[in-house]
Computed example of a mutant assay.
Amino acid sequence: MKLDDDIHNYYEHLILERIAELGLNKNKSNDYIADLCCLALNQVPPRYIRYEVDMSFYLPQSERQQMEMNVTNAVNKAIEFLDEEKK
């Protein structure tokens, strides 16, 4: 078993989804996106899964909403930090 192929942090998916929603992947560099992901992921608790479908079917709606709120806050703080460093 390869741990890196079989198991991953579900928050990675949510953060990348949020970045795409904001369109940052279209107007920011790969380095910026990588830094943003690291900063945001360090602010949320890990949630390891094997299959995406498990989260889709077995995650209560209230917990999903909390996770999305956590991601929104983490991404916003990471953007603020990265953009402040440029000033």
Rank of each mutant, 00 (worst) to 15 (best):
L3A: 12
L3F: 12
D4P: 06
D4K: 11
D5I: 13
D6G: 15
I7S: 02
I7D: 02
H8E: 01
H8L: 09
N9C: 14
N9W: 02
N9V: 06
Y11A: 14
Y11K: 09
E12N: 12
E12P: 06
H13N: 09
L14Q: 00
L14M: 10
L14P: 11
L14A: 03
L14C: 09
I15K: 01
L16F: 13
L16Q: 11
L16P: 01
E17N: 14
E17T: 08
E17D: 14
R18M: 15
I19F: 05
I19K: 01
L22F: 09
G23S: 10
N25D: 14
K26Q: 14
K28I: 06
K28C: 14
K28T: 04
S29T: 15
N30E: 12
N30F: 15
D31P: 02
D31K: 12
Y32G: 14
Y32I: 03
L36T: 06
L36K: 00
L36H: 06
C38M: 10
C38I: 10
L39D: 06
L39T: 00
N42T: 08
N42Y: 08
N42A: 08
Q43A: 15
Q43I: 02
P46H: 03
P46W: 00
P46E: 13
R47F: 13
R47E: 13
Y48I: 04
Y48A: 11
R50W: 05
Y51P: 00
E52R: 07
E52M: 12
V53L: 08
D54N: 14
D54H: 15
S56H: 08
F57S: 05
F57L: 13
F57P: 00
L59I: 00
P60S: 10
P60T: 04
Q61C: 05
S62R: 02
E63G: 09
E63A: 15
E63V: 14
E63L: 11
E63S: 15
R64C: 13
R64V: 01
Q65L: 13
Q66N: 13
M67K: 00
M67F: 08
V71G: 07
V71W: 02
A74M: 00
N76V: 03
K77M: 10
A78G: 05
A78F: 03
A78H: 05
E84K: 11
E85H: 09
K87T: 10
